[in-house]
Deep mutational scan, measured.
Amino acid sequence: SRSVIRSIIKSSKLNIDHKDYLLDLLNDVKGSKDLKEFHKMLTAILA
C-alpha cells in the first residue's frame, strides 16, 4: 500500500533529497497498477 511504500522510503539509507524526491513522486502516482510499478522501481533502487 501507499503507506507501506512511504515507510520504506523514510526508513531507507538514501539521503534526504532523494527521499523527498521519491515521496513527491509517490504523491503523483495514481492507480494500483502505477503503485505496483513504483514499488518495483523502489525495490530496484534500494537493492
Results as ranks from 00 to 15, higher is better:
F38D: 00
K13H: 12
M41P: 00
A47V: 07
Y21T: 06
H39Y: 14
D28F: 08
S1M: 13
D20P: 01
D17H: 12
I16H: 12
H18E: 14
K10N: 09
H39A: 14
G31N: 11
L26F: 03
N27Q: 13
S7R: 11
D34A: 15
M41G: 03
K33M: 06
S11Y: 10
D24K: 14
D34F: 06
R2Q: 07
L25R: 08
I16G: 12
G31M: 05
K19Q: 09
D17V: 14
L42V: 12
N27I: 04
D17L: 10
S32D: 14
I8C: 04
N27G: 10
K33I: 07
L22Q: 00
L25G: 01
L22N: 00
S11Q: 10
K13Y: 04
K40F: 06
A47E: 08
S11G: 11
D24W: 11
K36S: 08
I16N: 13
L42R: 00
L14T: 02
L42T: 02
A44E: 11
L25W: 06
Y21F: 10
I8F: 06
R6F: 06
I16M: 14
L35A: 03
I8G: 02
K40V: 10
E37L: 13
L23W: 03
S11C: 04
L26W: 01
D34G: 15
K40T: 07
G31Q: 04
K19F: 01
L23A: 02
A47Q: 12
K40P: 01
I9A: 00
S3N: 14
M41K: 09
S32G: 14
K36T: 09
N27L: 07
R6V: 15
A47F: 08
I16C: 05
V29W: 04
K13F: 11
K13R: 10
I5G: 01
L46E: 02
K19L: 03
A44V: 13
K30S: 07
V29G: 02
R6D: 05
D24N: 15
R6K: 13
K13M: 07
R6G: 05
T43F: 11
N15Y: 06
L26Q: 01
I16A: 15
S32P: 14
N15Q: 10
L23M: 07
I45V: 10
S1G: 05
L14R: 01
S7T: 10
T43S: 10
L46K: 02
K40I: 13
K36Q: 10
I8L: 12
T43D: 09
Y21Q: 15
Y21I: 08
T43E: 08
I8M: 14
F38N: 00
I9Y: 00
D28V: 09
R2L: 13
L42Y: 02
M41Q: 07
L25P: 00
K30M: 06
K10S: 08
H39M: 15
Y21V: 04
S12C: 04
I8Q: 07
K30D: 06
D24Y: 12
S1Q: 11
T43M: 15
S7H: 14
A47N: 12
T43N: 12
K30Y: 06
K33W: 08
V29K: 05
E37N: 12
N15C: 05
K30F: 05
K19I: 04
S12I: 03
L14G: 02
I45S: 03
K30Q: 07
D20Y: 13
E37Y: 08
I8D: 03
N15A: 13
A44D: 10
K10G: 05
K13L: 08
G31D: 10
D34R: 08
V4H: 11
S7Y: 11
L14W: 02
D17N: 11
S11T: 08
L22M: 05
R2V: 10
M41T: 07
S12G: 02
M41Y: 11
L42A: 03
S3Y: 08
L23E: 04
N27M: 09
L46S: 01
K10P: 00
K13Q: 11
V29I: 12
N15L: 07
R6T: 11
L26D: 00
